[in-house]
């Protein structure tokens, strides 16, 4: 996996984000902003019991936050709140690792992250980590309501 920040997968999700738009009948909603840049994201979820049935996000943000929101939403559909809480923690840990962290210690986590490993380059761009994690923070805030 290359360390380039703007992986093709990230650019692709930025251009055509999944689950982007309004959502009627949401059971859980949260809006979070990034005071560093003024970016803002609203995540809306319809929970079926403990499981995410539908998710959508809106707002304005950079390529990293849009792509992260898009990939996160793909993973969220059908997942339980406990699974998403764990995924959010794993992703935060992943992007906060030192830039030259070896594959081995977090290989299992990397596998669990799936496409989200495309954000490996954020490790070298410390100030951009909050862009990548913003959607997860909004999702957790929504689920906590």
């Amino acid at each position: 996996m290359s360390d380039d920040l703007y992986q093709a997968l990230i650019v692709l999700h930025d251009r055509a984000p999944r689950h982007h738009g309004p959502l009627a009948g949401a059971t859980h909603v949260a809006t979070i902003d990034n005071p560093l840049c003024g970016d803002e994201i609203t995540v809306r979820v319809i929970l079926d019991g403990d499981r995410v049935q539908t998710i959508a996000f809106e707002g304005h943000g950079c390529a990293l936050s849009r792509a992260a929101a898009s990939m996160m939403s793909e993973r969220a559909v059908g997942a339980t709140t406990a699974e998403l809480t764990a995924l959010a923690a794993r992703f935060a840990q992943f992007v906060q690792a030192p830039p030259d962290a070896t594959e081995a210690p977090d290989a299992a986590s990397d596998a669990a992250l799936g496409d989200l490993v495309a954000f490996r380059g954020v490790r070298r761009a410390r100030s951009r980590r909050t862009c990548a994690t913003l959607p997860f923070r909004a999702l957790l805030a929504a689920l906590a309501r």
């Binding site: 920040l5 703007y6 840049c37 970016d39 950079c62 390529a63 990293l64 951009r128 862009c131």
Partner: peptide, 8 residues
């Protein structure tokens, strides 16, 4: 997005 411009 400006952040992406500045990072590149």
């Amino acid at each position: 997005h400006p952040h992406d411009v500045a990072t590149i």
